[in-house]
Nucleic acid binder design. Structure first.
Lengths: 254, 254
DNA sequence: CGCACTATTGATATTTTTCAAAGGAAGTGG
DNA sequence: CCACTTCCTTTGAAAAATATCAATAGTGCG
């Protein structure tokens, strides 16, 4: 804890990047915008940066903005009275944070890694949503995708074994990373784990010990190799998919 | 039901009910419509009826319509290659079925009880969505609600005990029923279970034996009484909420 | 009445959690 | 530079929860 940690996210505004040069331009809520729309967004957007571990919002508190994740990873989580927690959303670059029309956050939002958000104050964004069908349509589509992803997660939490859960998680990370790179997940791919074992456990509905044990088991069986604690090499991606228990074809064509 | 069983859903068009008299008028995707919108919907809608157990759609198959559930209960479920299944959505009256912009169903859709759908062919409905911000806005709001509900379910599947799962399920059914009646869940309420133990197990990520045992345990402990196999009386609703592990205040004000 | 389906209950097996200890890696201050 | 602290991770042993296998009991219907 030197000086950096005492800087609040509010005071930390990185330089504006023009939307046209944005790394998430073709995946985020602004993906279907045309030049005029982008000008309007450019005028109202601002950046916020969080360090790994920082709280972005607390359940029950007002959140004055909605945002796109530009870089880094954020987690949405719910906590029960006795302290059990479940992560209910993992926001990767291009994902949308916040609910238009409801300023009070339903979840705790945490920066799982260093995080850069492209923010919009609620009011202007909601006005824009009302007036611009390209943006509202895109947001509907993204929300429907989020719902499908949540439903896939229901299957994981309800029916998969601990080993399958770990494998599924790695597959998802690899697929998301590939999608952002506009590529296919390859053999020999290296997957970064932007989460501690504990955060993985919260996401997978397991304990951190079980996560650790199952990662060790996948390593023993040659499904993965560890490159440090936070990076995983996958020699045979199809093998990993098989271990995840999912259809090898990955479901619907998108 | 004598002759009815041989009639396929397609051939079975109940008489049209004017939207203005519809029991789900103020909760469904059409909730925010004005008179002119309703005329347009009235002109294109048609009803379909399914019997308990019938398949509405299969994962991977085209679905030519989207729909609102008018009466009855439908389930969305996913099945793994080895047969494990997880229900990922429970559609109660006023819920929306189908994804605009994607004709291929991602899930198996089953009528869990006798079911009445108010259907719209895809093309006209998608045109309407594009041209009518009241409908598209309402659909976005409903989808965000679905996403919140799915996330609450993630907590249930990931972190709750079998007993808490059963209690939570009963609470949800009671709340949904009360919402449709525009009332609060009361003490002494009777909750209809429109599902077999097996369907409940599929929804809760349990086996049917565990469901049966936990229902018996809740009965033994006086939390519920069984009225027949498919109806449950709740003498003390707060007690049930406590057993569900949720905050007693039920989260956000809506 | 008896069949088919659904639900309950019991005994055992399996999986995952819990409790406990210890091993690394990174940063801090002497 | 090194000892020290802290955080994260791994591993082991025992306990708990739930699944599985198996038998029995209601329920509704032809």
């Amino acid at each position: 804890m030197t000086q950096v940690k005492s800087i609040t996210p509010e005071t930390c505004h990185p330089m504006q990047v023009p939307c046209a040069d944005c790394p998430i331009r073709y995946r985020a809520v602004c993906a279907t915008c045309e030049a005029g729309d982008l000008d309007r967004l450019d005028a109202t957007k601002y950046y916020r940066r969080y360090q790994a571990g920082q709280t972005v919002a607390l359940a029950g508190e007002r959140m004055e903005f909605v945002a796109s994740v530009v870089t880094g990873v954020a987690g949405l989580s719910q906590t029960m009275e006795d302290g059990r927690t479940q992560m209910v959303g993992l926001l990767l670059p291009s994902d949308f944070l916040g609910r238009p029309g409801r300023a009070v956050s339903a979840y705790d939002v945490t920066a799982l890694s260093d995080l850069l958000l492209c923010c919009f104050r609620r009011k202007p964004f909601e006005d824009l949503l009302r007036s611009n069908p390209r943006i509202s349509g895109r947001l509907l589509d993204m929300t429907l995708d989020d719902l499908d992803a949540a439903r896939e997660w229901l299957l994981l939490l309800g029916r998969k074994s601990a080993r399958e859960k770990i494998a599924s998680f790695l597959v998802i990370l690899a697929r998301r990373h590939a999608a952002l790179m506009q590529a296919e997940p390859e053999n020999g791919i290296e997957i970064e784990l932007p989460l501690t074992r504990e955060a993985m456990a919260d996401y997978l509905g397991l304990t951190l010990e079980t996560v650790s044990r199952q990662i060790s088991a996948l390593k023993r069986d040659g499904v993965i190799r560890l490159v440090g604690k936070r990076q995983v090499a996958v020699p045979d991606f199809n093998r990993l998919v098989t271990e995840s228990g999912d259809d090898s074809d990955g479901g619907l064509p998108i």
